[in-house]
Design a protein around this nucleic acid. Structure first.
Lengths: 164, 164
DNA sequence: ATTTTTTAAGTCAATAATAATCAATAGGAA
DNA sequence: TTCCTATTGATTATTATTGACTTAAAAAAT
């Protein structure tokens, strides 16, 4: 097992997570890349590395940013549980390979149990079908797991429903 | 939490949005460029910048204007009577090609407009990133449109699942 | 009726301040 | 070794602001 506990990226990651804890009632935090870099005595692009490797959509975060004067980086937390158990559960259920057909059946169950909305089911199904030419059961499983894990622990609430 | 959104363009944007709120029953507002510029102590072309960067069609607005005496700028809010129109709007805005970066920016706007939820935004971002090696702007646009249009049209139809 | 003047909006390029990207390199683990 | 994660810095792109110059519309003057 690797021990990265004292490398800079890890430290910056913990700092950002700490910002979220200080803003319990908000689901986003804002920061300035330049300031953070100065604070940790690193080059600014290191911040991008931390964001890319630890705060991407697959981990339940979205990034918004602006350049120029008044520039900023905003990190939105969409999901926020400790994913370990649920993540393992999803791994167990889907495994290394899954057919499109089985994936769709599982989506129905998830929808029945209100883990996902109809619209989310639609998006996932379209994404899984998209591989078109080379949609192997293996690739389907990988994408499927990534999609499900991303919204694993964010609760379905009123705001997750949009009429049309 | 720091706000960082205190630049002039943001202030002017919020002011204009406020005008729309004061005229809830109307789908347009009018203003005079020169007056606004004086009001905010800026150069008139700054108003054009705000309009160009924040009140374009992708954000659901159209601009009309006239020069000379009785000159004005009119900002219209686009409305949709049918889901079909939303779908067409999506088509127009995305076009045949789009970069991942621009797609993510558009998702930001769509969430802002409550066309999609944050969870849906997560799913779409992951799906668009997934193409990894062969994610051309053309393929990105095709998948992106298919995903969004499936959400915009209320009924689930066969055409949402067609590969290409 | 035509030309000139006045008034107001549009365009474009220059500048400053950020952030993003990309490729090279280093370091540690298997 | 070989692979993956981190670090670094040079280069590129974006955002907001400003002002000089251009264009358009209506009124005034002829």
């Amino acid at each position: 097992m690797q021990d990265y506990s004292d490398n800079l990226s890890q430290v910056i990651e913990r700092y950002i997570l700490g910002l979220f804890q200080n803003e319990e009632d908000e689901n986003f935090i804002s920061l300035r890349r330049k300031e953070l870099a100065e604070m940790f005595g690193c080059v600014p692009s290191q911040i991008n590395y931390v964001l890319r490797s630890r705060f991407g959509p697959e981990r339940g975060y979205l990034i918004e940013s602006r350049r120029g004067e008044y520039g900023y980086i905003k990190i939105l937390r969409i999901t926020y549980d400790e994913p370990k158990e649920k993540s393992k559960h999803i791994n167990d259920i889907i495994g290394d390979e899954i057919s499109l057909h089985d994936a769709c059946r599982l989506l129905e169950v998830l929808k029945e149990r209100s883990f996902i909305t109809d619209r989310e089911r639609l998006l996932i199904e379209i994404a899984l079908r998209n591989e078109s030419s080379n949609k192997t059961p293996r690739k389907t499983a990988r994408l499927f797991k990534r999609l499900l894990k991303s919204l694993m622990s964010s609760e379905i609430s009123e705001e997750n429903f949009i009429d049309n």
